[in-house]
Amino acid sequence: MEGVKKSYGDFEVLKGIEFSVKEGEIFGILGPNGVGKTTLFQTVLGLLRQDSGTIKIKGTEHTQSKEIKKKIGYLPSDISFYEGMTARENLEFFTELAKTDPDLDDLLELVGLEKDSDRAVGDFSTGMKKRLGIAQSMIKDPEIIIYDEPTTGLDPQGKKAFKDLVKKINRERGKTVIISSHITTEIDTLCDRFAILSDGKVEACGTRQELNNETDTDSYIRLKTDDVEASEEILEDMGLEYEAGKKKFEILAEDDIRSELFDRLMEKEIEVDAFEMEEETLETTYLKLTGGGK
């Protein structure tokens, strides 16, 4: 996307959006409510026409054509189906519109709705509708799938099930996935890269580590081991700042030193019980960039 702008009357929602998504990755778009995430997706799909800027999908400029829509699967934030129709009938209807011939049994099985396929969607819970929405997004066998705030309204089990499903779709079916959310913790472990939207612009774009670097957000590595003395020797030898607890270390990592540190620990044959990066850094970065962390 290059310089994409979109206004509603005098209100400018998108003020020159620029980012790119790599093929085969899971890309997260983070931003507070009302920042324009849905408008951005609707523009990509051609449901809205941008005022200026270009959108290219696999090098082809977006022209609101049917061809573009064939390449993109979409799950709107408030997914709604024809409630009087069954799950299968809904999928059949969208299959007719898509002019494709997907294996609906396979899709229903993928999302775990094979036993509920002949029930009216009006009787479905929010989680079941979301899962049906995921199956619907696969009908076109698209190259790209867009999920707009997909975890909204889901309980913790539903959120976990959704993440597992998206990973499966990305890895096993080779789909490029774009997900939006205003809650970092819901997609931070799922996405390879992120774009952070604020005030109608992309404030930052990249991997979690790149975002941390951009905002000077410190990362921490949590190390848990019984071999405290040997571990401390390595940390001091590497010149790292750390806080030591009982069999635990919290190590400040300005750069991604995970593999170097891990190799050194292995060389000394230190038994590692836990070794992980601080998980809250994306939240911190996000808050800094969107002005919520002041």
């Binding site: 799909l45 449901l47 049917k66 993109i72 709604s80 189906f81 409630e83 898509a98």
Partner: peptide
């Protein structure tokens, strides 16, 4: 009202 129009228009349809 049922918010199906967005989904409908996301398909290859004018």
């Amino acid at each position: 009202e049922d918010e199906t129009i967005e989904l409908l228009l996301s398909y290859p349809i004018y």
